[in-house]
Amino acid sequence: MTLTKEFLEVLIIEDDPGDYTLVKDYLEESFENLSYHHSFNYKNAEVLLNSDFKFDFIFLDLTLPDVSGKPLIKKVIDLAGRSPVIILTGSLNLDFCIESLKLGVSDYLFKDELNPNTLFKSINYTIQKQKQSLNIIASEKKYSDLFHLSPVAMFVYNIDTLKFLDANSAALELFEYDTEEFLSMHLQQILFSKEKDDFLDALKETSHKNKYSFKDYFLYKKKSGDEIKAEIIVKTIDFQNQKAMLVVANDITERLNHFEALSEQNKKLEEIAWEHSHEMRSPASKILGIIELLNTDSTSKDEQKFLIKEIEKTVKELDDVIRSVSKKAKQIKPKK
């Protein structure tokens, strides 16, 4: 058997000095660089587990003078954090063995069957298993971060109860709730009553689909009662063993407001164009008419004087219209 050179911190919680020595001897056969810590009772172990020491694995005898059995396992597992716990026991009780594995124990070894090989195998197996579970935790965290740190608002609700199960900070910010408030609410509370039924029906229809994006936007209610217009993509997911819907909401309120501002601006431009063509054309045509009349030689001297006066008046009228057009044009700057 090759010696493992890895540097490992080991805690052995064992009141029997003979058993402690035996375990230590066996370990030394396969591990070169182990650093041993020994507790004779739970009280002492508790101190070590609460210290800054990080143990790579912990051996636990099930019968200690101060605590034993299931309560002992629970206490140690609680304090062990991510350090794997391997049970050492003299009594062969398979039911209890399975039960303790459920409590989070990594392995369960019988002292009578103990030898360097079984110990080596158990430790390596435990360490590998631990690495994998750490990988899974890391990967879960990565996905959780993708959800929680995303700038796009996302939330999850239970398909049957419509209760919110999770929401990222972008969603909380969008709806103006804090986490606790939001997670105590259900879907209806962010909808306006007039749209509620349509929306829930639409969602129900998508629940058998894997993923669905709505073409049209819906209105949502902020805590303040203000409106949000958002396009959503929904996806049915399994969330902590519940049938759930993941909703990705894209807030388009601003975009639509811009759009409205633009069409408002357009309307004003149309008004100006109309004023141009009509209000300006009207005095212009009058002036042309007067000139036409002057050209016909059918007018007396007095009439000519009067008509010239009229041209002046009408030009002023035209000037007023031009001024009002340029004033209107200045007003059509889009709203911010």
């Binding site: 009058k286 007067i290 036409e292 016909t296």
Partner: peptide, 15 residues
């Protein structure tokens, strides 16, 4: 509604 326009029209129609 514009008296001037009416005046032009009358004159033009006469002429």
């Amino acid at each position: 509604d514009d008296k001037m326009v009416l005046f032009i029209h009358e004159k033009m129609m006469n002429h």
